[in-house]
Every structure is written in C-alpha cells, then in structure tokens.
Design a protein around this nucleic acid. Sequence first.
DNA 1: CGCTTTTGACCGGCGC
DNA 2: GCGCCGGTCAAAAGCG
Length: 326
Amino acid sequence: MLLMDSAACSPVCLDLSVGLSPSSEMATPDRPERTDRPCKAAMASPMSDEQAKTTLEARFTQVTEENRRLTEMIAFLYASQVARQSQSQSPDGGTGSPTPGAAGRKRSRESLEPPSSSGDAHAAKADAERALESHGHLSDEGTCRRIKVSTVCTRIDPADSTLTVRDGYQWRKYGQKVTRDNPSPRAYFRCAFAPSCPVKKKVQRSAEDSSVLVATYEGEHNHPSPTRAAELPGGAPDSGSSVPCSISINSSGPTITLDLTNNGAAGVRVLEATDAPAPDLKKLCREVASPDFRTALVEQMARSLTKDSKFTDALAAAILRQLPEY
DNA sequence: CGCTTTTGACCGGCGC
DNA sequence: GCGCCGGTCAAAAGCG
C-alpha cells in the first residue's frame, strides 16, 4: 500500500490520544516541566482558557473517536499529497483489485499484510496483534507498517440486539460467529464505502456487560469518512456550533494551529502554519507527527483538563468502564 | 430487481 | 495427525 511504504514514519502512526492512553510520552522523565514549556496555547488569555475547560469537559468523550478520525484524515491528506507528487508514476497505487471472491479464500489475509511479511514475521505479527488486542492501538514507530488495531467500546441499550456501531463509515456485514469466550455472537464487517478499503470491523457485546458493544477495527481507511468527505480539504466551513478550541505549537520551528472545533467531525483543520507560506502537507504532516508536537498537544490538553475536578471524576468513571475489557 | 443480511460450510492456524 | 476455533465465503433469504 502506497500509504504505508511512503517516506519516513507516515503520519498514519500519529497518535493524538488525549488523556486515556498511558502514553509513554506522558511519563518521559526528561520531559521539561509543563509550566516551563513555551507553548503558545499555554499563554492564551484567561478567557479562552475558561472556554477551553468547559468545552473540553463536554467534548471529552468525543476526543478518542476524533483522534481516530483525525489520524485517518491526516493519512488521507498525506496520501493525496503523495499521489499528486507521484502522479507521473504508476497510476495503480495499490495491490490491484481485491474484489471479493476473485482470488479465492486466501485473498483477504494476504491483502492486509505488509508486502514484506515472511514466515517468521508472520508469527511475530500474530504476537503483536495479540498484544494489540489488549493495548487498543499501536503505540510506536516500530509498528508503522503493521495493521492498526483499535478497540472502541460503546454503551448501548441492552435490549438492542443489533450489532451496529455508528462511526460514520458504511459497513457491509460478511459474517457472524459465536465465539468460545462470549455467548453473544461476533459480527464481521468490511468497509463498504470504498471497495479497496482494507478496514475490517468486529463487533461483539462485552461478555461482562451486555450493554457494552466492543468494536475492534483492523487496518486503516484509505479514504475519508463518507459523512465528512465533503468537509475535507477546501470543503465547507464547519458547523460553527462549538466553542473554538485551538491548539498551537511552536516547537523550535513553524507554528501550526489546529482547530479542534469540528464538533465530532473528522475534525481538525489547519488554521495556520506560519513560516510555511505554501501549505506543504507533507512537511506539515511530519511536523504534526513530531514528538514535540505530540508532547505539547498532550500537555496543553492535560493542563486544561486536569484543572477541572468534574472532568477528572468523569475521566475516572470512563476508565472504570473500560477496565472489564482488559 | 438489486442490494444487503443471514447462515451453514469451508479453510487455515494452532495446540496437543 | 487430529480436533478446536476464529475468520471468511457464498448461496439463500430478506428487504426496500
């Protein structure tokens, strides 16, 4: 896949998880003291800080989902940029037609694996994927080329027997199985929006709590969310219904301002990238994926979030809800 | 009538 | 080698 093989550490691996992930960056010992960091956002006016607090609390449950969508959107932007740059090269850009059934039953698994996978690598991959099941997502650069696996837990009406998770994508169900460790059936879905999209989703009720739906996503979409596609590059302005929440980073270089106000949409827009007159997306993506950006982003959000006791209570409750899954 | 969902069969990996 | 199990296929059924 073009996306995965391109350049140094594709932004596909960007992890902007806020607050939930016990990210290693958060515990990095050599990290400068938060209050000393020259982060633009930290110097925002008291007014915007207050706004950010209330907004962040209300929107916290959306952030994890937004994180995933953001990653996908950046991947899409990056892929588009790369595609434009290499337009004169092979127009194929993929592994050919993965039409179901065209290549027999062996097709699916191979098509999702990195092209370089070998026998030994396969075993290692299996181990890594098992580990990922418990971690929820890939966490470092060394796994850039592996299948991204993420788990999303959704609370639903226990009486609702449909295994559907509204995530903005179109899914085609291709199977259902009763698994050994869970009395409720597991449904298998493929992304139905783009025929070439390799993403699969497994949905199953939690064995411990039937009101919790566990959706496991494998792979990454090679297209934007169909419900947000129109809002992508140069698209219509956002709904404007939310309070502005911008995060800036000035990491010894260009200043990038991201708009996180898209109200649950794929939601981050680059408002400005000073010192970068032309919107060089590749450079921008690299900047966004940089450790400095991630650190500053986490710090900025953590600073705002942790000031609010109501938020920390809600966070603790949210974490507790996740625990039975692990 | 075409698309989607259901469901039993099949396949391959893995442990014993 | 055998059986178990998760994942996938594909024909049939359902639905708009």
